[in-house]
Amino acid sequence: MKKKSWNEFRQTGLLWFINSILHLFGWAIVLSYKDENDDEPTAYPARVPFRGFDEEHNTKGYQMVTHYLKKNIDYLMDEANDERDN
């Protein structure tokens, strides 16, 4: 296991992806920054009144996750294959 930052998780698009699933249940993971230079936000689950994101945010989210997959697919496949071998 390797600890990663919330900012890296967000930049992959995975925070958007997970929140799009959580929205179905009226939940979201919220990142709260003290200021624009804050590298490590406070993260907490929250109940939310909305369900889903608008088209612009969905398009950007899908692009970010697709880019992450394209960049990391070889590593992810190697990691998955290593798990099967153990």
Results as ranks from 00 to 15, higher is better:
Thr12Tyr: 02
Trp27Thr: 14
Val48Trp: 01
Met64Pro: 05
Lys70Tyr: 10
Pro49Thr: 08
Arg51His: 13
Leu76Arg: 06
Ile18Cys: 05
Ile29Gly: 04
Ile21Ser: 02
Val30His: 09
Thr66His: 14
Tyr62Ile: 14
Arg51Glu: 11
Pro41Tyr: 01
Met1Gly: 10
Asn19Ile: 07
Asp82Ala: 05
Ile73Glu: 12
Ile21Pro: 02
Asn86Gln: 03
Phe17Glu: 09
Lys4Thr: 08
Ser5Arg: 09
Leu14Lys: 09
Ser20Val: 08
Val30Thr: 15
Asp74Ser: 08
Ile73Lys: 14
Asp54Asn: 15
Asp78Phe: 05
Asp38Tyr: 00
Asp54Leu: 14
Lys2Asp: 04
Leu14Phe: 11
Lys71His: 08
Ala46Pro: 02
Val48Asn: 05
His23Glu: 08
Asn19Thr: 06
His57Asp: 15
Gly26Phe: 05
Tyr44Phe: 09
Phe9Cys: 05
Met64Val: 06
Pro49Tyr: 03
Asn7Gly: 05
Asp74Phe: 06
Arg10Cys: 12
Pro49Ile: 04
Asp54Cys: 15
Gln11Phe: 03
Lys2Ile: 11
Leu22Met: 10
Val48Glu: 04
Val65Gly: 07
Tyr33Asp: 10
Glu40Arg: 00
Ala28Ser: 12
Tyr44Val: 06
Val65Asn: 09
Arg47Ala: 09
Phe25Gln: 11
Asp39His: 04
Gly13Thr: 09
Asp39Lys: 09
Glu40Thr: 08
Gly52Arg: 15
Asp82Thr: 00
Met64Trp: 07
Ala43Tyr: 01
Thr66Glu: 13
Met77Asp: 01
Leu69Arg: 06
Met77Pro: 00
Glu55Ile: 13
Leu24Phe: 06
Ala80Val: 02
Asp78Arg: 02
Thr59His: 15
Glu8His: 06
Tyr33Asn: 08
Asp85Asn: 00
Tyr68Gln: 03
Tyr75Met: 03
Ile18Tyr: 02
Glu8Asp: 10
Gly61Tyr: 08
Asn7Gln: 10
Glu36Trp: 10
Asp85Met: 00
Glu56Thr: 14
Asn81Met: 10
Leu76His: 01
Asp74Ala: 03
Ile29Leu: 12
Pro49Ser: 11
Asn37Pro: 00
Arg47Leu: 08
Gly61Gln: 13
Met1Ala: 07
Ala43Ile: 01
Phe9Lys: 06
Asn37Ser: 04
Met64Asn: 14
Asn19Cys: 08
Pro41Arg: 02
Thr66Phe: 11
Asn7Ser: 11
Asp35Val: 01
Lys71Cys: 10
Phe25His: 13
